[in-house]
Each structure stands twice: as C-alpha cells, then as structure tokens.
Design a protein around this nucleic acid. Structure first.
Lengths: 238, 238
DNA sequence: CGTTGACTTGAACGATATCAAACAGGGTGG
DNA sequence: CCACCCTGTTTGATATCGTTCAAGTCAACG
C-alpha cells in the first residue's frame, strides 16, 4: 500500500508543518483532501467573525492576522510564514481577519474533512496543539513589546523577528551582515508594532544613521551587526 | 467501582476546568495525584525560564502571568481566574513568571504524573487544547488593546474584563449598577495595560467624574452603566 | 502620634501622533 | 523617450497624550 509518490513527498514544508507527525497511511488520507492554492498579495483568506471554509498550511509567502476597532484602527496580532498552520481548529468563527501580504502558496483542507482527520489521527491534533502553544508564546512576547518597548526597540525587535523567520532553513547568520527583504510595507509594520507609519519610517532612518542597518530601496534590509541590534531591542541604552 | 465520594465531587470548578471532560474512572485517577495548595498574595508559582514542578487548576483567587525586560519594565501577559489551568503542558520551561495576586487555592498535579494522564486520556489533552485556544484569543484581544487603544479605553476595557470574569457564575448584570472588587493594585493594572500608575489613577478619577463608575475605597468599583462603559472601551468618542 | 505604603494630584517634559509637504520609483499614455 | 500620475515613503513642524518627577492625601498599623 502507498508505494506511489504523493504531492506531499515533495512538499517544501512537509516535516516542519503539522503534517510532520503523520505516518504513511495517514499522510495518504490527508493528501487525498488537500488542494493547493496560489494567492496574490492582499487576498483575504479569513474574515473576522465569519465561518472559515478551510484550514491551510502555508507552503510559501507571508500571511497577516489582524484585528480592528470600529473606527478603523488596526493591529496585526500574528504573522504567519511557511510551515505555519492557518485557521483555528475547533472554533466556528474566525477571531481575526487573515490576509496574504506577499504571494502565498497554501495547502488547503476542507474544514469538516480535516476535523474528521484530527479525530482519527491523534498525533495530528497534538501537533496542532504544539503549533497553538507556539502562537501563544509569540503573542505574549509581542504583548511585552506592545506594552513596554519604545519605538526604537519595537522596530529593532521586528527586524530581528523577520530576519529569524525569513531565513528559517538557511540560518547561518553568525557574525557578518545579513540581508533580507521585508515582507511588509511601512503601514503594515506600523500596524504590527502599534505605531504610525511616520514613526516607523523615522526609526528606520535612525537605525541607518546609527549604523545598525543599511537599506537598499525601502524593502531590502542589511543588518550590519546582529548582536548590536539584539542589544538595542531590549534596552534603551545599548 | 468508584462509588465513594471524591474531593473532586465537591470541587467548585469541577465542570468548568479541564477536569470537566473526564469520566468517572478517569477523574478517580486524577483525584489520586491531586493536592490542594493555599497561597497568600504575592507567592511565586512559576519562575520565568525555569522548569515547573507542577500544573494546577485555580480553584479560587487570581494569578498574574508576567514577562519582563532586563531593566525591570514589566508586562502582565495573562490574568488567570477560578477554573483556569496553570502551566504550559508539553513545554520544559515556563515562558513567564506566575504569581498569586490574591489569596489563591490551587489543585496541583505533579508534572510527569499529569503528563502521563494526558497521554492516557485523550479528552484531557483536548480540553487543555481548548483552554490554550481561549488563552490565545485573550492574548490577541489584548494585543489590540496594547497597540491601539488610548489610556481611557484601556482602563474601561480592563474594568469590563474584570467585571465579566469576577462574576463568572452569577452573571446577572443587565441594566443596573454592578459592584465588584478589583483583584489588582494600581501598579499591577498599569503593568497589565502598558501604562504608568499615575495614568491609571488619573483615568479612574476621570471615569468617576464622568459618571461611568463610582469608587468605594480604591479597590471597590461600581459600574454605573455597563453599556456606556462598553461603548467607551472601543471608541474615543462615546 | 508618627510611620509606612498605596493612591492621588500637579507641573513640566518628552516621545509619539498628527498634519502637511516633499520625494522616489514604477507604470502608463502621449 | 519623456511627462505624468499614482502610491508608498521620507521629512518637517506642531500638537497631544502619557510619562516623569515631586508633593500631597489617606488609611492602616505599631
């Protein structure tokens, strides 16, 4: 049984995603209900307070989760990268709005079919649980940032976080300068850090002037000294 | 089997806590490893980044979860009330500092014994999962507050949250004024809202002057119009 | 009573927001 | 190819909200 090759076998995030827990026969059943989907930037994946139609693994790209107040103020409450799981299992309504910020490739699972599988495969549910714990850790870390860090520390923390998550696999940033592209526009960074666009922009030029980073265009960041940036991200002096 | 009465049978939070999922034989095994513990206010339950010795259900009282920066700035990342579960399952190190803020009664379970039970009782793990999802919802809701709300909205939101969670069972606050005691001191409220003590204090007197609330001493709150306070908690105008 | 700790109030300051304008890059149509 | 616009970004001037620092109040307690 199951000698033939599955799409999953060549999946870039196979072992890092929630699928990593599954045995061969299990992955075959999951494979049977999976559909890949390609989305352009700005595509709405889930609407706040609506019933989601499907769950998904992110194969590539970046998705933002946002919440808003009645008057339009917005806050990004989560950023999801390749191998992250999208959607709240065991919840009927989405607690946030989810939207692609780059081109995104998803591996989707119809909601009720997927939920049946989580019942059958205990490891799958456990893996979802682990993922949720990671999300909770990230959220609480961000609460500390939002509540207690200065604008400069916020931006520094943001750059470190993105640097860490964008390289994910090829993480060889010991010592020398590290280059990467920001997936978010200034307005989105502001919504993530609880700041305004202008403040974010000013902090970038400040970091540039103080030789923490250098910029190519407005999206490409070169971190000149990761360790110095890390120090800045937690203390006003540094 | 299991005809005799267990401590769990008279437990005030029996059905609301993670134990609610368990069958009679299961609850007996859990009962066998449970120990109740009474703590005074200010008792440290878990230290950030240390191995926890036990998990616990909160039977009564309030526990705060905090994270801090190197220089002493602090942020409360979670408030736990009766029936909440304390401790991160499947994690070796505590991601936060946990401390009682009132007198607290806990029902504790030794870590490895409890983890064995979660393996045996699938519903128990599922229930823990559900609890974690609730915590995540709360955390993301709070991110919106920390990043985007004004001091006034923050304090109003805080009062609503406490009012909701303190009454828990007897929630009959339709219409008339609602009275309750704050479990937190001003300094702790400040750490929860990402503000300073002084700002919190000023907002309380503002709410008092504007007839949203009335105070008895500094800890007892009377919300004069719940609906008006709710409107205030989400919009600057109101 | 005097002391202590938690809370409130006041005045001045500063970080970030707000409002406004200039700038840069990329695409389009002439 | 250039003029134009569109959108995102940067920069500048000013305003505001919340912080900081400093007193002052109040209740509990020895």
């Amino acid at each position: 049984m199951g000698e033939h090759l599955l799409r999953c076998d060549s999946c870039a995030v196979r072992h890092r995603s929630v699928c990593g827990a599954l045995t061969r026969p299990e992955i075959e059943r999951l494979n049977a209900i999976a559909h890949t989907k390609n989305l352009p930037p700005g595509h709405i994946i889930l609407r706040d307070n609506e019933k989601p139609g499907y769950f998904a693994n992110i194969i590539s790209g970046v998705v933002k989760l946002t919440k808003s107040l009645g008057d339009g103020r917005q806050q990004i409450v989560g950023l999801q990268f390749a191998s992250d799981f999208l959607g709240r299992p065991f919840r009927d309504f989405s607690p946030y709005h989810a939207e692609s910020v780059t081109e995104v490739q998803l591996c989707t699972f119809e909601k009720t079919q997927f939920e049946r599988l989580t019942k059958d495969f205990r490891d799958l549910e456990h893996r979802l649980f682990e993922h949720t714990l990671d999300e909770l850790d990230a959220a609480q870390e961000w609460m500390l940032l939002l509540g207690r860090k200065s604008a400069e520390e916020k931006v520094a923390s943001f750059l470190l976080m993105v640097a860490r998550r964008m390289q994910s696999v090829g993480c060889k940033h010991s010592g020398g300068p590290t280059r990467f592209d920001l997936p978010l526009a200034r307005a989105e960074i502001a919504d993530f850090l609880g700041l305004t666009i202008e403040t974010v922009s000013r902090q970038f030029t400040r970091l540039k002037v103080d030789k923490y980073i250098s910029l190519e265009g407005s999206r490409t960041i070169i971190v000149l000294d990761m360790e110095r940036l890390r120090a800045l991200s937690e203390r006003s002096d540094g």
